[in-house]
Design a protein around this nucleic acid. Structure first.
Lengths: 112, 112
DNA sequence: GACATCCGCAACCTCCTAGTTGCGGATTGT
DNA sequence: ACAATCCGCAACTAGGAGGTTGCGGATGTC
């Protein structure tokens, strides 16, 4: 079905709906967990702002943090991303199917 | 590269980050253009609220409206959806690649 | 011990979002 | 002509998002 849990999907999409967070996710795609200060470097924002963005991503289940010494390193958590990716794929599929049915219907009318 | 235009992607994601708009999109996937009142029926919201949501979707380029008589019918516009779908697919791919590299590196260390 | 880093908490501000209500114009139906 | 329907515009409210600053605690470095 994959159309359940739209609240969860909306949450993930909302977390993706910000340029800064997209940039953070892109950097986290490199693999190794990165600290907040390291993620802040390269941005024009404050550390606190990045911290809040990471909080949003964490609440959406898209990142996971672990404390190592004095720094907390964030790592990507791919499952929510894969979920919404599949969700969008199914929406596209449904739309294509609907278009196909409509087209077939119109052609059927023309043929009669 | 597909990693340009992150602003546009963020806009589409933000438009997807709301349960009501996800429901509207799901109904628009059925194919035929639907009027605002028809989309409002089935929701607990006001027509104006739905109008605003449609405005957000339209600004993101995800729907297209055409006026027919006294009603304006909205239709899905699949290209932005397909764009962000591919964007998410590439993020997943990059993450998998990074994990593969890290795993290979660790195994290389163990083997030496 | 002294100092620099890294971080979390809290307060504050500004702006946008989601939603409502009221009103008036345009279109359709009888 | 009249009523009902569909819509757009404008004003208003409550609350959340994004961002900054200041402070203090914990950790690492010399």
């Amino acid at each position: 079905m994959s159309m359940q849990l739209e609240a969860s999907h909306a949450r993930v999409f909302a977390a993706l709906g910000d340029e800064t967070r997209l940039a953070v996710l892109a950097r986290l795609c490199e693999g190794d967990p990165q600290s907040i200060s390291r993620l802040t470097a390269g941005t024009r924002l404050t550390r606190q702002a990045v911290t809040k963005h990471l909080r949003v991503l964490s609440d959406a289940g898209m990142v996971h943090s672990m404390r190592i010494g004095r720094e907390s390193r964030y790592q990507l958590q791919p499952k929510p991303l894969e979920d919404v990716r599949d969700y969008l794929a199914e929406i596209s599929r449904r739309w294509d199917d609907a278009l196909g049915r409509l087209k077939a219907h119109v052609e059927g009318l023309e043929g009669s």
